[in-house]
């Protein structure tokens, strides 16, 4: 017989992690709901997840490659830019949907008892579908250009996970802050629209002056994108010091988790 005790004392860190694990089915359910909603009632349905990166490739290629003459080295520009798109789309999906996940689900928060970390986590999970589809698109495109994937492709999941961690760290902060101070709701679009300029999505880091290039990698998404390029097409392997960008991510994650947890205790009274 299950026994539940409710008191004013809240569960500690490890109990909370255990609780999130117990609710893994809910993470899956909410991710599935999210995906279904995203493509329901659209004529093209899931095709959109292929069209969006294709359109992005077309625009970036025309604008940066043909008009501005950004060089992608030996790699054809579309193959160069797609890993950037994969990384950036995944990251922005997590901070956008994850950052709004508490605010967007007041009915669940007010009426169902579950660890609220489930909400941003379900957005991480639902974002993986687009990542997988775009990776498939990448393989097709590589075949079209006559590229054979090397064994380095085995490292792709690592970079996708790092990207998810970076996105989750920020969305923990954004989602918790947005609940208490709606001001942060306005921050997210700025993060996304300005963030792309300091992330090597459509340009290689080599076009930067050497002194600036190393600072670029303080941006964790820059590490992820460089890593994806290295895995999928030729590129410079990320050096160990590139991962330095993940030290602030880990700090953001740890502190963000604590803040999120403290907000969660009173969240019902706020949403």
């Amino acid at each position: 017989m299950k026994k539940t005790v409710i008191t004013s004392e809240q569960s500690g860190f490890f109990d909370y992690v255990k609780r999130v694990w117990q609710y893994r089915a809910l993470i899956r359910v909410l991710a599935k709901r999210d995906i279904k909603i995203r493509y329901s009632q659209t004529a093209l349905g899931i095709l959109w997840s292929v069209l969006q990166p294709l359109i992005a490739i077309a625009i970036y290629t025309v604008f940066f490659y043909y008009i501005l003459g950004v060089s992608s080295g030996k790699v054809p520009y579309p193959l160069f830019v797609l890993p950037g798109i994969i990384g950036w789309f995944q990251f922005t999906h997590i901070i956008n949907a994850g950052g709004m996940s508490l605010l967007n689900n007041p009915d669940l928060i007010r009426r169902i008892d579950f660890p609220k970390l489930v909400l941003p986590l379900s957005q991480v999970l639902s974002g993986l579908l687009e990542v997988l589809i775009t990776l498939g698109l990448m393989l097709i495109l590589m075949a079209a250009y006559g590229y054979t994937p090397s064994l380095r492709i085995a490292f792709v999941p690592l970079f996708i996970m790092l990207n998810a961690l970076a996105g989750l760290s920020i969305s923990l902060w954004l989602s918790a802050l947005t609940i208490k101070y709606r001001d942060f709701h306005h921050v997210i679009p700025y993060l996304i629209s300005f963030g792309i300029w300091i992330t090597p999505v459509f340009y290689p880091t080599t076009i930067l002056p050497d002194s600036a290039e190393q600072y670029m990698f303080l941006n964790p998404v820059a590490v992820v994108i460089a890593g994806l390029r290295w895995c999928l097409v030729e590129g410079v392997a990320p050096a160990w010091y590139h991962f330095a960008g993940f030290i602030p991510v880990m700090a953001l994650f740890a502190l963000g988790y604590r803040y999120f947890y403290s907000v969660e205790q009173t969240i019902v009274d706020h949403v």
């Binding site: 017989m1 299950k2 026994k3 539940t4 409710i6 008191t7 004013s8 007010r110 008892d113």
Partner: peptide
């Protein structure tokens, strides 16, 4: 239903709870 916490006091539930707040 566990959605919010008490300030003090204790609730003990033996068994599975289903709460339908809406």
């Amino acid at each position: 239903s566990g959605v919010t916490y008490p300030t003090s006091g204790k609730v003990t539930i033996n068994g599975r709870v289903l709460s339908v707040l809406d």
